[in-house]
């Protein structure tokens, strides 16, 4: 009868020949040489991929979900600015404020210097008013508001120019 072959790992005789081991090591232990061009191409491809992933994240769903709220916030901010700054801008552009009804510094100050003393104050309006009362306001230069008549409307224009804070700030 034939004796069975023992193939267990514990078999002390299960050793490769030294020559074979040496040949195998020589065959597979040699490092594969990677050309520099290939190496750089791999690195460049990796960078491109990373950049693409960042761009993709910006437009990801997480960001898209904030676009509508951000637009709403922008509209709200614009509304706040319009409501708070708008009326002041309109007033500073020369439109009369409520209760004013006058034209502040709409013309050079010299045009209102009725008494010719070098500055505009209530005495200019007073002089014009007295001239109108006495019927002595015939000089067309006294028609400071440029309408058809020299009347109390002209007096008011001069008086409002006299008390204008803008005019006072300039002087």
């Amino acid at each position: 009868m034939k004796k069975p072959i023992d193939r267990t790992d514990e078999d002390a005789d299960l050793q490769l020949p030294r020559e074979l081991v040496a040949d195998l090591r020589a065959l597979y232990a040699r490092a594969a040489a990677v050309p520099p061009a290939v190496d750089e191409a791999i690195v460049a491809a990796a960078r491109d991929r990373a950049r693409d992933r960042r761009v993709a994240w910006i437009f990801s769903r997480r960001m898209v979900r904030w676009i509508a709220p951000a637009a709403a916030a922008g509209v709200a901010a614009a509304a706040v600015l319009l409501l708070s700054v708008g009326p002041r801008l309109v007033r500073e552009a020369g439109a009369p404020a409520s209760g004013g009804g006058g034209m502040f510094a709409a013309r050079p100050g010299d045009a209102y210097d009725i008494n010719g003393d070098g500055h505009v104050d209530i005495l200019d309006a007073y002089r014009l008013s007295r001239a109108i009362r006495r019927g002595e306001a015939a000089d067309p230069r006294l028609n400071v508001n440029g309408d058809e008549a020299i009347d109390d409307a002209d007096v008011r224009v001069v008086a409002l120019a006299a008390v204008s804070l803008k005019g006072a700030d300039r002087s």
Binding site: R91, P96, A97, S98, G99, G100, F104, D121, I122, A125, Y126, S129, R133, R156, A159, L160, A162, V163, S164, L165, K166, A168
Partner: peptide
């Protein structure tokens, strides 16, 4: 009320002027 600049309302400075008629 005397003449005054309406922009003085809400501020801390005003110029007042009037004459007797």
């Amino acid at each position: 009320p005397p003449y005054f600049d309406p922009q003085a309302i809400g501020r801390n400075r005003v110029i007042l002027a009037a004459f007797d008629s």
